[in-house]
Amino acid sequence: MRTYNVTHLNQLESESIYVLRETAAQFERPCLLFSGGKDSIVMAHLAAKAFAPAKAPFNFLHVDTGHNFPETIEFRDRFVKKLGVQLVVGSVQDSIERGTAQEETGPDASRNGLQSVTLLESIEREGFDACLGGGRRDEEKARAKERFFSHRDAFGQWDPKNQRPELWNLFNGRMGPGENFRIFPLSNWTEMDIWQYARLEEIDLPSLYFAHEREVFERNGSLLAVSEFVVPRDGENPSKETVRFRTIGDATCTGAVRSKASSLDEVIQEVAASRVTERGSRSDDRRSEAAMEDRKKQGYF
């Protein structure tokens, strides 16, 4: 008897492409949230495949905290140019200057939470009715219950107790005026799937993900990189180490890991052996047990 096996990566790919096409079909002006991190790169790669040989019918939106690793911005600009898509940048700095967002104070101040303000402002300014995000359900427990098509009210809020049931692959993207959707094509991917798929498809990733030498120091259990935004305090002794990043977010809250993995094959081996999740190195999730849920309710990605 003929068998029809489909590998797990092919299944995930097909599912994501289906969701991306559904987004294009159900919304007037969808955008793709592009951070320059591996998840958004894989999502953009899938978007390019979904609509080939045409261009993906999405504007790319980068919510920029201003606290980036320079490598991320370089990569972003190169990537967007290659795909030939339109990039819109929403700047947290602009929101702060306009007075719609206020910079956190205190020793662990971060602009991470402020991204929600800038995101909602960008959505309104550009008239986006849906934002594609690279969020995965395995990342964090509040995300484990997130839908592919996640409805947000006119204030951009997520109501976890009142989500639309999602069955089969029938997605309900209908909404009232002023409301919008966050859409997560990578919902069912794990960190490992992302790395494996990047390897399989030979997707180019920023150099930050691979072992390199960098000035780092420890703070609250995270290995932070010294930069113009992150300055060691008294008693924090920076040293040069061989590290890489498992996630790339705002430079102020993204921790590095000591690693010698310099290729995707080595990264895959390392992640397989790792006993800590990738978010274990992100201080934004450690603020409280429900930190992610609270941020999402306020309109976070």
């Binding site: 359900r137 427990k141 509040a142 919902s187 069912n188 047990e289």
Partner: peptide, 22 residues
């Protein structure tokens, strides 16, 4: 699996949770 604040407070599972292992 019970990740939402209300679930932990009430000790119940409210919604479908998707979990992954390999």
């Amino acid at each position: 699996t019970d990740g939402l604040r209300a679930e932990r407070e009430q000790g119940i599972t409210i919604d479908v949770a998707y979990r992954y292992f390999a």
